[in-house]
Design a protein around this nucleic acid. Sequence first.
DNA 1: AAATCAACCAACCGCGATTCT
DNA 2: AAGAATCGCGGTTGGTTGATT
Length: 583
Amino acid sequence: MSRTTSESGDGMISKDQTESPLGEEGSYGGSTNGVVLKKGPWTSAEDAILIEYVKKHGEGNWNSVQKHSGLFRCGKSCRLRWANHLRPNLKKGAFTQEEEQLIIELHAKMGNKWARMAAHHLNLGLMYSSFCSSQLPGRTDNEIKNYWNTRIKRRQRAGLPLYPPEVSLQTLQGSQQCLDINGMDSGNKGQHDILQTHNYGIPDVMFDNLKTNQNILPYVPELPDISASSIPMKGLCSSEYGSFMSPTMHRQKRLREATTLLSSFSGGMKNDFHLFDQFQDGDKAAQYFGFSFPFDPDSATKNPEIFGENQGSHTLANGNFSASKPTSEAVKLELPSLQYAEIDLGGWGESCSPSPLIESVDTFIQSPPTGTVESNFPSPRNSGLLDALLYEARTLSSAKNQSSDKSSNSSTITPGDNADCSALNISETEWEDYGDPISPLGYLATSLFSECTPISAGESSLDESPPAETLTGSKRKFGCSAECNMKSEPVDHTWTADRKKESYTQLDITRPDALLDSDWLEHDSGYGKDQVIMTEAIATLLGDDLSSEYKQMAAGASTDHGWGLDSCSWNNMPAVCQMSELP
DNA sequence: AAATCAACCAACCGCGATTCT
DNA sequence: AAGAATCGCGGTTGGTTGATT
């Protein structure tokens, strides 16, 4: 472990200094201009020096540490050491069950965004721990990453799905709700009054999720019925956690951090799809979700790569995958087999054999549609299975629309339309395709999880705890043989008004303006008072110089009803309010 | 008791983004 | 505006330790 550093400008020491008392351990890396960097484990003396330096000069400017303190470490190394070991409020030791589960959930949502997870971890922990006994103090990204990688290996070896079924279900539900709302929101403006009658508050969703977890995830402690107003937002910007968002942080930097922080509240439904980021073929996805392939023996024969017997193999190429790389880039765009051109939009009902569907899933993963059906929708950025499915669904809906539009001589969708308010426009009629058990997606999504057979394993981890609720599928079943691990209970998946209503109750947190919407505050409790509290909290979070800007914007939002701000006014909002995660 | 393996942990590296000059 | 410096993130490697064979 004696690598040489490639970085220039790192803290350097002269060669004749390498016999310093601080250098009794570790090695010395590359030398440039007669100075040598110390590498390897840190000594307590070095730690003390670094701590002293940070006390005096604060964090940042790491490359000057060596100059000022005589520490023979590069700035990078100092920063890492500080961030991972020396900075205050770090929690050491084994992860608690709550932490483990949170990591699993966050990973399902975010993918390998360790730093974001760590930040979220901290933030949620602060809020969460304020009203329940669980404590989730700061963990480092490195810790989380190490934990996760270890977990992957362990489960890979055990032939277990990476995510416990309940987390998979949660994530899919989340994305389903996303579909719901996207479909309803932009597709039918007339639904706004319905939307207005419900709460769309981000904190509500967050806590609703936690409450939901009480049903699904036994480890989540009982949550008191607490309104958003009770959340001690002040803790988020307390000096104790100043390292998270330093008051001296650059303005733009603080905005970024605020974005991260707030997006950790809003979760970003789009991020929900990261669960699938790691799967570049259906086999892995299936394995990770605990699906029991093959669905169809014939398909298994035809396509052993997908349905083969390698269930226990868990081949993660080198155990190495990246969620940050969009699938659309990571995969070849070849369009094998039956693919989109052959999909009969109207013919899902009768003779649709399972294998093409699953094959299509695989196809979706590997080859987001690129040309067969021209899409008016943005291609998936953080593509995963669901992203691809959503994308395809929209594409198909769009195509369907266009074809019907052609017959009815109605106008076609233009890119401008997309850019405006209808980027995710799926009409209610179209949406019925999703909910329709015989539609490709309704069929697919429900069926996928109907296959989700809990795997009982010797692992004592909570990961393997059986799901609290039976995962149900659609009425229609794949025509598989008895060897398939499929549940056969018929489940009503009819798209009912109740289901619609249920979907309305979910916050569209894909809408960044949701946070600014007044309704969730007003409907939930405390009316304007809560809004003020929330506004103040966020404003405080953003810092003095941004708070007025934010408050002004929030005040504007509060006078709006329904969505608070429509998409158009959203586009006109100051950049500070847009939380930067929009494309 | 020695060898092997797995888990854990700390640190390094490369790279991209951001900030500074 | 351009290049350099700095920072931060994610991936990876290697050392240590404990359990198992």
